[in-house]
């Protein structure tokens, strides 16, 4: 497998972009940072399937495509199935010797938003992972259905103001906690599971390379700050991602073969969750005096999760 060097950024910048500009994602969208990096971290041929969502509707607006690789979109929920099907066909044809170019390295990748991963495509993803196809599923987690106007998904965290869980006089927004997809996929039998963020480019590129090199199903949860629905200025995408990783709201870690948990990034100065929430318009109402208890609850849950991850890392079970 040919990989691009991630030793330093100068080395990495010699990669040839295979994700073209003039796609129609919002200015400052983190989706394209993540997708670009995936395609830059390897020289192998890629077969990419994408669920319906921001990425799909913005990069394949007829008559244009932004993809320089094989790319397919079928339905809202079945990028995992499409990638799994392509992979099964590739293996079968390789065995029969009917491939045109049998020595060319090929990797199978599926992209989905959090709506199509956590909710709508959940059983398709679960099935493809259970069958053990050799593919990498990347969830671009922006914590809501951003493509259709910001409805809540099961990835939306507690207290967020969304169009279907609005904050106001009687409610502080979404009341349920975010689903722990990392633990679910690890328990589902994925060979490699990792949480990455675009602001830590090296961490992210290394996770992508590990996932592509791993034989078997891999799941990557990529935090994708959404300028439109999280309501911050488009220039602050990296700043908000920094706040997310440094406040441990999005701890970066990996789980190998379902049991070996490694924390891949430890912030030098952990900042309060309050700072992360204050940077986004969707949490503005939490800073009213009557919602103080939600802020306290937030911090408590983040601390408990970080404690749990550290214990898991030590225990190696």
């Amino acid at each position: 497998m040919a990989i691009t060097s991630t030793k330093n950024l100068k080395e990495f910048s010699t990669a040839n972009d295979r994700f073209e500009g003039a796609h129609l994602l919002c200015p400052g969208c983190a989706h394209s940072m993540i997708v670009r990096e995936l395609m830059n971290c390897t020289d192998d041929n890629l077969v990419i399937a994408t669920n319906t969502g921001c990425l799909e509707v913005s990069t394949a607006v007829y008559p244009y495509t932004s993809w320089d690789t094989s790319w397919i979109h079928i339905g809202f929920e079945n990028a995992a199935t499409a990638a799994a099907g392509a992979e099964a066909m590739y293996k079968a044809r390789k065995r029969k010797g009917t491939l045109k170019n049998p020595d060319a390295p090929v990797k199978f990748v599926a992209f989905g938003g959090d709506g199509s991963t956590y909710d709508i495509g959940f059983q398709w993803l679960s099935g493809a992972v259970e069958r053990g196809h050799d593919f990498t599923y990347i969830c671009l987690d922006n914590e809501n259905y951003a493509n259709t106007g910001g409805q809540r998904s099961s990835s939306t965290p507690i207290g967020a103001n969304t169009t279907t869980a609005p904050a106001g006089r009687v409610s502080y927004g979404k009341k349920e906690n975010k689903k722990d997809m990392m633990a679910i996929m690890a328990a589902n039998g994925a060979s490699y599971v990792a949480q990455v963020a675009p602001n830590k480019w090296k961490n992210m590129a290394q996770a992508f390379q590990k996932a592509l090199a791993t034989e078997g199903p891999c799941y990557i949860n990529a935090i994708s700050a959404c300028t439109t629905e999280w309501k911050f200025d488009s220039k602050d995408t990296i700043h908000v991602s920094d706040l997310a990783t440094d406040s441990l709201v999005f701890p970066l870690y990996e789980i190998i073969d379902g049991h070996e948990l490694n924390i891949t990034y430890r912030p030098k100065n952990v900042i309060p969750v309050r700072d992360y929430l204050a940077a986004q318009g969707r949490f503005r109402h939490l800073f009213k005096p009557e919602n103080e208890h939600v802020l306290i609850e937030w911090q408590k849950r983040v601390d408990a999760n970080w404690e749990r991850l550290q214990r898991r890392e030590e225990a190696r079970v």
């Binding site: 950024l9 100068k10 990495f12 910048s13 972009d17 994700f19 073209e20 500009g21 003039a22 796609h23 994602l25 200015p27 400052g28 969208c29 983190a30 989706h31 394209s32 940072m33 670009r36 990096e37 675009p198 602001n199 480019w201 995408t237 990296i238």
Partner: peptide, 16 residues
């Protein structure tokens, strides 16, 4: 030439 702009550009618009 640190290439920070290149790696974080969402629109593949930094020519490097």
């Amino acid at each position: 030439d640190c290439q920070n702009c290149w790696v974080y550009c969402p629109d593949t618009s930094i020519i490097s």
